[in-house]
Design a protein around this nucleic acid. Sequence first.
DNA 1: TTGCGCTATGTTACCGCTAACGGGGCCTGC
DNA 2: GCAGGCCCCGTTAGCGGTAACATAGCGCAA
Lengths: 344, 344
Amino acid sequence: MTNPTSTEPRRALTLRDVSEASGVSEMTVSRVLRNRGDVSAATRERVLQASRALGYVPNKIAGALASQRVNLVGVIIPSLSNMVFPEVMTGISSVLDNTGLQPVVGVTNYLPDREEAVLYEMLSWRPSGVIIAGLEHTAPARAMMAQAGIPIVEIMDIDGQAIDSAVGISHRRAGRQMAEAIIASGYRRIAFMGTQMPNDFRAKKRLEGFEEALRRNGLALVDREFYDGGSALLKGREMTAAVLRRSPDVDFLYYSNDMIGAGGLLYCLDQGIDVPGKVGLAGFNGVELLDGLPRRLATMDACRLEIGQRAAQIINARNQTADLGPDVVELFPTLQPGDTIRQF
Amino acid sequence: MTNPTSTEPRRALTLRDVSEASGVSEMTVSRVLRNRGDVSAATRERVLQASRALGYVPNKIAGALASQRVNLVGVIIPSLSNMVFPEVMTGISSVLDNTGLQPVVGVTNYLPDREEAVLYEMLSWRPSGVIIAGLEHTAPARAMMAQAGIPIVEIMDIDGQAIDSAVGISHRRAGRQMAEAIIASGYRRIAFMGTQMPNDFRAKKRLEGFEEALRRNGLALVDREFYDGGSALLKGREMTAAVLRRSPDVDFLYYSNDMIGAGGLLYCLDQGIDVPGKVGLAGFNGVELLDGLPRRLATMDACRLEIGQRAAQIINARNQTADLGPDVVELFPTLQPGDTIRQF
DNA sequence: TTGCGCTATGTTACCGCTAACGGGGCCTGC
DNA sequence: GCAGGCCCCGTTAGCGGTAACATAGCGCAA
C-alpha cells in the first residue's frame, strides 16, 4: 500500500503536485489544463504528461471560487418517470454539449416545497442558469430566482407570468383545440380521465381550456375520472372500464396523457368497441410509445425536444452576451388525429 | 432599479452582508445557517431574520472548499429514456433523502468515451461518492475511480471485476434461467430479438447466458434480429413480423427488453397467434408498463429499485464510517411467467 | 472573593485555484 | 546596438466560506 504506484493515494492531488512533477509554476499548469493563455508546446506537453501520469483531476470547486464562473445549468423537473422530461433533457443536452455548459438535474415529484428545496440547493452552487418546469412556484422560490442574477427559463407552459424567460406551449389553448376538433368530428358525449395530482398545473390548464371550449359549444363533460399512482397503462384500462360502465352512452374519451390513453385504447380494442366509430379517443403528448400500438391514438405533441433546445439556447446566449433581456417563446403543438377520431 | 427592495441585486450577497445586517461576526452567521455549534436563541433568530430579509443563499462552492466536504453523489447512467434508470434513481433518492447527500445525474448514452468525460467532470467536483452503471469502463475511467479516494459503487451487473463496491444481478445467470424455464416448458425452436448496441454489455451477457443454456440442452437459436433506435414498441412489432415471416416454425420469442417484447406481444395478438400455445414470449426487466397489456408478458425483474437503494446505502455507510471496505451485493431477480409461457 | 468551567462569540489561517499584473529573454527594426 | 514589443512564465492577492483555536463574560462552588 505504500507502493508509489499504488491506487490508494495518501492525499488528494493538487496543482502543486503537477507543477512540481513538471518543473513549472502552478499557474502554468493551470493554463495548460484550461487551454488558456500562451504556453510553449514543449511545456504544454511536459505538463500534460505529468498530469496524466499522476492521474490529476482538477478541483472545480476551487476553480469556480477563484474565477467566479460555474459551468453548470440547473434543470428542475417534476419527474423522470414521465416520459416527457427525458426528452426535454435530450433537447437541453443536445444544445449544451457544444457550449461547455453542463446540465444538473433536480427532481421535485410535483411537490412545491421540494421544488423550493431543490432550487435552494442548486442556487447555492451558483450555476450559470436555471431551467425549471412550470410557472407556478412558492413565493420564496420566485424570490430566489428573481434575486439570483442569472438567466432563468421556465419551460413547458406559457399561460402565466414568467419570472424571466419562458419557453413552452399554451396548455389552455391545447385543451381548447382538442375540444374543438372533437366537436367538429361530431362527438357530443365526452368524458375526461386524468391524474389526481393537484400540482400538475399544466394538465389542469389543458382541462380548463377543454371545458371552456365545450361550454362555448353548449356542451359539458359527461363524466370524469381521476387516478393517482400506479401503472398508467393499467390505470387507463381501469378508468376506461369504469367510465364506460357508468356512462355507457359516452362517445368520446379524452385523456390527460398518452399513457392512460393507450391503456384506454387497448381496453376498447379488447372489448371489440368500434374505435373511432362508436367511441373516439385522444390523449396528449405525442409519446413515441404510441407508434407501436395497434391503432394510433389521437394526440397533440408537446414540443418537448424543441422546448429543451430553445431553453438551453436562451441560457447560452445570455451567458455569452451580457444585457440580453428576457425572452418568452411560445411554441405551437400540432394535433395528430391518428386513427381514433372520426375523419370526414 | 436603484430601489433598495429591487429584485436586481447590484452584487452577490455574502456572509459578510448578513453579518453586517445582524451585527454579529461572519462565523456566527455561518454557524446559524449550518445549525452547528452553540448560538444563543436570540442571536440565531436575529441572524435568520436578516438572512431571509436579504434573500441570502449560501455559497456552497466556498463552503465546500473550506470544509473539504461536498454533499454530492455522482450517478452515472447510460440513458434516461430507458425506463430502467428512472427507477434506479428513485431508489437512490429514497435513501439519500435522509442523509444530507444529494444525487447528481450524468448520462452517457452508452458511449464509453462520454462516460469517461462525464466521470472526469463529476470527480472534478469532488463528490462524496459515485454510483455508476456497469462494470465495463475505459482504462482511464477505471484509473480515475480507483484513485479518487471516495466510495465507488458499480451497479446493475456483477458479472465481472468491481473497482470498489458493486450491487447488481448476474445477467448471465438471468439469461440462463430464462432459457431453462423456456426449455422446461417444452419450447424448442427459439428466436432472439434485441438491441444492436455493442456497448449494452448487460444485454449481451444475458444473451450469452441464454445461448449457453440452450447449448447445454443441445439447442441453438433458430433466428435472431437486432434493432437500433426508434420506438421500441414499434420495433418489437416489426422484428417479430420479420422473424415469424422468415422462420415460421419458431415456437418461442425471447426479447432483450420488455418494451420490444410488448410490441411483439401486441403483434402476435393482432395476428391471432395462439400465445402461449403456438408461440411463447418473454422479455426482461419487469417494467410497470406491462401491467396494462392485454396479456402479461413473461419477464424477469431487474431489481432496479433495490439496486438503487443498496448502492445509496453503501455510499452513505462509507461516508459515515471510515475504513469500511468494499462491498459486493448480488441480488436475485425472480422469473415472472406471466401469461406468455405455457404452464403445466 | 477567587478561580474554574462553561457558553457564546470572535480571530486567524487556510482550502485550491485563477485574474491580473509583472518581468525576463529574445527577436526585430532602425 | 538598443528600444520596443512579443512570447512565455512567475508572483501576488484574493474568491467566500469553515476548522481550529482564542477569548470574553457569566454562574457557581469552595
